[in-house]
Write a protein that binds this DNA or RNA. Structure first.
Length: 960
RNA sequence: GCAGAGGUCGCCGAGCCAGGUCAAAGGCGUAGGCUUCAGGAGCCUAUCUCGUAGGAGUUCGUGGGUUCGAAUCCCACCCUCUGCACCA
C-alpha cells in the first residue's frame, strides 16, 4: 500500500520535472484539447468530480499515446453566491456547518478561522484541489490555471458580454423570483428553511366587475372556465382591501395587496374591511355581461393569490362542495341576508366534455371519492385529478363562444391572450406552497424589472445551436436527443444578479454576470492564459481589441499592440496559440449539466464563434452514487477525492470509479470494490514483475502465437471503446479480459518464460496505462524501458500476429473440456480413463462442403443429401452420411457467421495431433488417463462404439 | 406535471440500436479444492432447475402483440434515477 504510494509520488515527480503534460503548439502534430468544467470552490473535490475528470484524463492519456499533442487545462470556479454564504456561516459560528468543514472537508483548525474571508476559503480549497488533482495523476498543463475572479479573466468575460450584447443576444425584461422581503434578495433553494424546489406559479386574474368602477380580480389557473361561472366566493372572515391598482379600483385580500406591490403593480390601499361586507352583492361577467351573486366560501384562503375566487361548480370540486353546503344548510345564509331560494336555484353550468365523465364532472368525482365537504383534505386531490383530466382530454362545449370545439389545451393560451387584449384579465404570481428564508422570513414572489437575460428563446439562436450539435460527436449518442430538446425549451435566462462574486456587467451598473453565464466559452481563455501568466500581462492591457485580434483575427497587429502595450510577438503567439488549439475536442460532465452549462456552452459558441471553432465533442456521464445512495454532506456519506486517494491509492481509485458505469448510467462508489481493485493492481504488479524477471526463451510455438493473436484482438477492443469514451468497457477488457488471456496461457504452458509473453505484457501495460498510469510507468521502467509509458506509442493491431488457427484450436480444446465436464456432471462418474475419437477424413470433406454453403446462406438438408449422393466415394457410406449431415447442420447453425467464415478459410485436419499435444494438460485438468484415436483407427479402444459420433471440431467421447 | 435515461440469473453490470451465435460476457460475493509456517494473496472448480453421455426445462420490470423464432421489435401499464432556472 505505502509501496504503491511511493510509486505514485515517484512518477508524479518525474512527470512534473520532465514537463510531460505541458503542451505547446506544434504544427507537425495533430492537436487535442480536452476539458473538464471547472469545479466550484466552496468545498473540496469529491469522488463525483473524480469520476468525470478521470474519464477526461483517460481520454487525454489515450490520445497522447496515439501521438496527439494533447492539452488538458484546468481552472477554478469562484463566481457566485455560495462562497459568500459559506463564509458567512463560519463568521456567524454556525456549529453544524463548521463541524462539516472540520470532519468532512478535513479543514485544519488554524485554517478554519480564516474562512471568515470567502476569498481565503476559496484559495484554500483551490490549493487543496490542485494538490489532490496532481496526486491522482491527472495529466494537466498547470501553466494555464486561473480562477474566475482574476481581473484578467474578468476582462475576458467583459469582452464576451460586450459581444453578446452587441449581437442582440442579451435582452432586458421582467422576471418573477422567490424573494425574501427582509434580505431584499432572491431566495434560492439553498437559502431556504422551508420550501425547497418551490417555484412561482402564474395565476390569471379575471377582472369581474362589482360596479362600474370596481373590479373583483378572481385568481385562476383555468380561465377557460369563465363560461361556467355561477357565483363568486369570498371568505367572510378574511380581511380585504379596496385599493387603486394601476389606476383601477380593485378589491383583493390584504395579503394580495402587499404581494402585488412587488409585482410591477402600483398599489394604493384606500380602506380595509371584512369579506362579509361583499356577501350578497352581485357582480358582472365581463365577457358575457351576465350577473351572478357573491357567496360566503370559507375554503377561500386570503393568502393565496388575490383571495377572490369565482365558482364553477360543474368542473371544480371545491366550488361544488361549497355550493352544496350552502344549499343543504340554508340557515348559514341568513346571517348574510342572502336569499336561500336564490342559492338553491343555482345550477352548475357545464362547459367541458371529457371522456369518462358526464355533464358535471365535479359532482361525479366528489361522489366517487366520497368527499363530504369543503374542509375534506381530499377535495384538493379531486381538484388536481379533474384538472389534469380536463386539461389533457377536455373539449370546450358550444357555450364557450369562439373557443367552442377546441380542446382545453389548445384554447387556453389563445384565450388568455385574447382576454388580455380586451382588458378582461391581469396576471399575478404566487407560491403554491409556503417558502421560508433561512432568516425565518416568509418569502413572496417578486417580479424583478430591468433584469438582464440571455435570450435563449431567440429562434435563430436556437437554430444555430442545433447546428452546433449536429456537427458534434456526443458520447453516448443517446444524449443527442436530450441536447436537442433542451435547446428547444430553454427560455430567457437571467444572466446577471446583484450579489456574489463575479464580473460586473459591462453596461449595467450594480449587476454581476451570474455564475452559469460566465463559464460558457472560457475554454478559449486557456489557450492564452499561458502567455498572460508568463509575461505578466496586466488586465488593463486586455482590451476588447486584443481579444478581437486573438479570437477573431480583427485589426492590424501594430495598431492593437500600440493600444494595448502588448509586444507584437506575444500578441502573435497568443493568436497562434488560439488558432492551434481551438476549438476544444472534448468536454465531459455529468448529465445534470446538460440542461444548463453544456447547453449554454453550445449556445455561446454558436453566438460568438464561427463554425470552425465550434465544439467537436461532448461526453456526458451519470451521477456518482455512494454505496448505492446519493452523496450528500448532510447524509454523512460524502467522499472526497483526498479520502479516496489516501485510502486506496490513485490508480485503484481511478479504476474503481471507471468500472462503476459508463454512458448515462449512475456509477456507484463502493469502498469494498476500491479495496479489491487495489489488491488486483498489487497482484498485477507481482505477475508482471515475475514475467519480467524470468530468463527468456526464444520459444514461439502454438501458445505464443495464440497469446499474441489474442492481444491483437484486445488492442482492437480497447481502442474502439476508448474512441467512444466507453471507459468502463475499455478498462474491463484491458484489465480483466487480458488478465484471463494470460491465465489461460500460463495454465496451458505451466510457465511464462517465452519472449512472446514479455511482448504481450508490454502491450498489456500500454493498454492499461491511461487507467493506472503510475503502476504502468513503474512496470514499464522495470521492463527496461527508458522513456515514459505516458508517451509510449499506443499499440496498433498487427495483422501479421493474428493467428486464427491457434485461436480455433484453443476453442476446440475448451469446448472439448466443457463437453467432457458436462458428461461427468450428468453421469456423476469420477473418470479413470477418457477417450476421444476424432472424425474421419470423409466427414471432414462433407463438413467442409457444407460449411462453404453455410457461409453463402441457408443450407437445405435435402439439397445437401442429393448432392452428396452423387459423390462416388461416399456411396458405400450413405447410411452414415445420412445421420451425420443433420448433426453438422445443427452445430453450424449455432455458430455466428463470422466464425463460420473463419472456419471455412482454415485447414484444420490434424485434430488428433493437436489433442495429443495437449494430452498432459487434459490429464491434469480431468484427473484421468486421456487417449485420442482417429475414428477409423482399427486398434482404438472403444468398448461402447462411440467413435462414429465424432464430428469435425467435436470429437466423440468415451469415459469410464 | 414536463423532459431525458433506465429496470437483465445474490450484488454491480455487458447484451438490446442492426431479432436466431443467449442460461445470457466480465467483476464482486458465496461454496469446495490446491498452495502457504500463519495471515493475506494467488491458482483451480462450481454457482437458475433437472439430468447415469456432451441434453432438457423455466428465466431478462408486468401484461399483451408482431415473427418460424424476442432479453432484443411494437403497444399498454408499473417502478427507479436525473433536470426543471437565478442555483452551482
Amino acid at each position: 500500500m505505502s509501496h504503491m504510494k511511493q510509486i505514485e509520488e515517484k512518477w508524479q515527480k518525474k512527470w512534473e520535472t520532465a514537463r510531460v503534460f505541458e503542451a505547446d503548439p506544434d504544427p507537425k502534430r495533430k492537436k487535442m484539447l480536452v476539458t473538464f468544467p471547472y469545479p466550484y470552490m466552496n468545498g473540496p473535490l469529491h469522488v463525483g468530480h473524480t469520476f468525470t475528470a478521470t474519464r477526461v484524463d483517460v481520454y487525454a492519456r489515450f490520445k497522447r499515446m496515439q501521438g496527439y499533442n494533447v492539452l488538458w487545462p484546468w481552472a477554478w470556479h469562484w463566481t457566485g453566491q455560495p462562497l459568500l454564504g459559506a463564509s458567512e456561516r463560519v463568521a456567524k459560528g454556525d456549529e453544524t456547518y463548521i463541524r462539516v468543514l472540520r470532519e468532512v472537508d478535513g479543514v485544519p483548525e488554524e485554517e478554519l478561522e480564516k474562512f471568515v474571508d470567502p476569498l481565503y476559503m476559496a484559495q484554500y480549497y483551490t490549493n487543496e484541489g490542485r494538490k489532490i488533482a496532481k496526486r491522482i495523476g491527472f495529466s494537466v498543463d498547470w501553466r494555464r490555471e486561473f480562477t474566475t475572479v482574476m481581473p484578467t479573466y474578468q476582462r475576458f468575460i467583459t469582452w464576451q458580454y460586450l459581444n453578446l450584447h452587441e449581437k442582440g443576444y442579451v435582452t432586458q425584461g421582467t422576471h418573477p423570483v422567490v424573494w425574501c422581503p427582509k434580505d431584499k434578495s432572491p431566495t434560492g433553494d439553498h437559502d431556504r428553511q422551508v420550501g425547497e424546489g418551490v417555484t412561482p406559479e402564474e395565476y390569471t386574474l379575471i377582472k369581474y366587475k362589482l360596479d362600474e368602477e370596481t373590479f373583483l380580480p378572481a385568481a385562476t389557473f383555468r380561465p377557460e372556465t369563465i363560461f361556467g361561472v355561477t357565483n363568486m366566493w369570498i371568505n367572510p372572515d378574511a380581511e380585504y382591501v379596496e385599493a387603486v391598482v394601476n389606476g383601477e379600483k380593485w378589491i383583493v385580500s390584504q395579503e394580495a395587496a402587499e404581494k402585488l406591490k412587488e409585482q410591477e403593480h402600483t398599489v394604493e390601499v384606500k380602506r380595509a374591511f371584512k369579506g362579509r361586507e361583499l356577501i350578497g352583492k352581485n357582480f358582472t361577467n365581463p365577457v358575457t355581461g351576465n350577473q351572478f351573486p357573491i357567496l360566503p366560501g370559507w375554503f377561500v384562503d386570503p393568502k393565496t393569490a388575490t383571495g377572490v375566487v369565482y365558482s364553477v361548480p360543474a368542473h371544480a370540486p371545491y366550488d361544488w362542495l361549497a355550493l352544496k353546503d350552502l344549499q343543504e344548510k340554508p340557515d348559514i345564509l341568513g346571517e348574510f341576508g342572502v336569499d336561500a331560494a336564490m342559492v338553491k336555484a343555482i345550477k352548475p353550468i357545464s362547459l367541458i366534455t371529457v371522456d369518462g365523465y358526464g355533464e358535471f364532472p365535479a359532482l361525479e368525482i366528489v361522489k366517487e371519492m366520497g368527499i363530504r365537504d369543503q374542509n375534506d383534505p381530499r377535495a384538493d386531490e379531486a381538484t388536481k385529478a379533474l384538472y389534469k383530466k380536463e386539461f389533457h382530454g377536455g373539449v370546450l362545449k358550444e357555450n364557450c363562444g369562439v373557443y367552442s370545439g377546441k380542446t382545453v389545451r389548445q384554447a387556453k393560451d389563445v384565450l388568455i391572450a385574447d382576454f388580455k387584449r380586451q382588458g378582461y384579465v391581469d396576471g399575478m404570481y404566487d407560491l403554491p406552497e409556503s417558502v421560508v428564508c433561512r432568516c425565518m422570513t416568509p418569502c413572496i414572489v417578486k417580479v424583478l424589472s430591468d433584469q438582464w437575460f440571455l435570450n435563449y428563446s431567440n429562434a435563430e439562436w436556437k437554430a444555430k445551436a442545433k447546428e452546433v450539435v449536429a456537427q458534434m460527436q456526443i458520447y453516448p449518442e443517446t444524449a443527442r436527443q436530450y441536447f436537442l430538446t433542451v435547446i428547444d425549451w430553454l427560455k430567457e435566462w437571467a444572466c446577471a444578479r446583484t450579489t456574489g462574486f463575479g464580473t460586473p456587467l459591462p453596461w449595467g451598473k450594480g449587476w454581476i454576470v451570474e455564475t452559469l453565464s460566465d463559464s460558457t466559452i472560457y475554454m478559449a481563455f486557456y489557450t492564452i492564459n499561458k502567455h498572460i501568466r508568463e509575461y505578466g500581462i496586466e488586465p488593463e492591457a486586455l482590451t476588447r481589441e486584443v481579444f478581437d485580434y486573438v479570437f477573431y483575427g480583427k485589426g492590424e497587429t501594430t495598431t492593437v499592440c500600440q493600444a494595448s502595450d502588448i509586444p507584437a510577438d506575444i500578441l502573435e503567439a497568443m493568436r497562434n496559440e488560439f488558432l492551434y488549439w481551438y476549438p476544444f475536442d472534448l468536454r465531459v460532465s455529468a448529465k445534470e449539466l446538460v440542461p444548463n452549462h453544456l447547453s449554454f456552452c453550445i449556445f455561446h459558441h454558436a453566438a460568438l464563434f464561427s463554425p470552425e471553432h465550434w465544439p467537436r465533442a461532448i461526453g456526458v456521464n451519470g451521477m456518482l452514487m455512494i454505496e448505492g445512495k446519493q452523496m450528500h454532506k448532510s447524509k454523512g456519506n460524502f467522499v472526497t477525492m483526498k479520502n479516496a486517494v489516501d485510502k486506496y491509492g490513485a490508480d485503484a481509485t481511478r479504476c474503481a470509479l471507471l468500472l462503476g458505469a459508463e454512458g448515462m448510467d449512475d456509477p456507484d462508489w463502493r469502498g469494498d470494490n476500491a479495496a479489491d481493485i487495489r489488491g488486483k493492481l498489487e497482484a498485477l504488479r507481482k505477475l508482471a514483475l515475475d514475467i519480467i524477471d524470468k530468463t527468456k526463451s526464444k520459444e514461439t510455438g502454438h501458445m505464443e502465437n495464440w497469446l499474441l493473436s489474442k492481444m491483437q484482438q484486445r488492442v482492437g477492443e480497447v481502442t474502439r471503446n476508448l474512441e467512444e469514451l466507453k471507459t468502463r468497457s475499455s478498462l474491463e477488457t484491458a484489465l480483466f479480459e487480458v488478465w484471463n488471456d494470460f491465465r489461460w496461457y500460463t495454465r496451458r504452458k505451466g510457465e511464462t518464460e517465452a519472449e512472446a509473453v514479455q511482448e504481450a505484457l508490454e502491450v498489456w501495460l500500454r493498454l492499461l496505462a491511461p487507467f493506472a498510469p503510475h503502476l504502468c510507468e513503474e512496470l514499464w521502467s522495470a521492463a527496461g524501458k527508458e522513456s515514459f509509458i505516458s508517451l509510449a506509442e499506443w499499440p496498433k493491431i498487427d495483422e501479421g500476429k493474428l493467428d486464427v488457427l491457434a485461436e480455433e484450436r484453443e476453442i476446440l480444446l475448451t469446448d472439448l473440456i466443457e463437453d467432457t465436464l458436462n458428461v461427468l456432471r450428468a453421469t456423476k462418474i469420477s473418470p479413470k480413463r477418457v477417450c476421444y475419437y476424432t472424425a474421419s477424413g470423409w466427414k471432414w470433406n462433407v463438413y467442409r462442403s457444407i460449411l462453404e454453403k453455410a457461409v453463402q446462406g441457408e443450407v437445405k438438408l435435402n439439397e445437401v443429401m442429393k448432392e452428396l449422393a452423387k459423390d462416388n466415394s461416399l456411396r458405400q457410406n450413405m447410411k452414415a452420411v445420412a445421420s451425420f449431415v443433420p448433426k453438422v447442420l445443427k452445430t453450424l447453425s449455432k455458430l455466428p457467421n463470422e466464425r463460420r467464415v473463419r472456419l471455412a478459410n482454415l485447414e484444420i485436419a490434424d485434430e488428433k495431433e493437436f489433442i495429443e499435444s495437449a494430452l498432459g494438460f487434459l490429464e491434469e485438468r480431468l484427473n484421468a488417463k486421456v487417449a485420442v484415436y482417429g475414428e477409423d483407427d482399427q486398434s482404438r479402444f472403444d468398448p461402447k462404439k462411440r467413435a462414429p459420433l465424432a464430428i469435425p471440431g467435436q470429437p466423440a467421447i468415451y469415459i469410464e
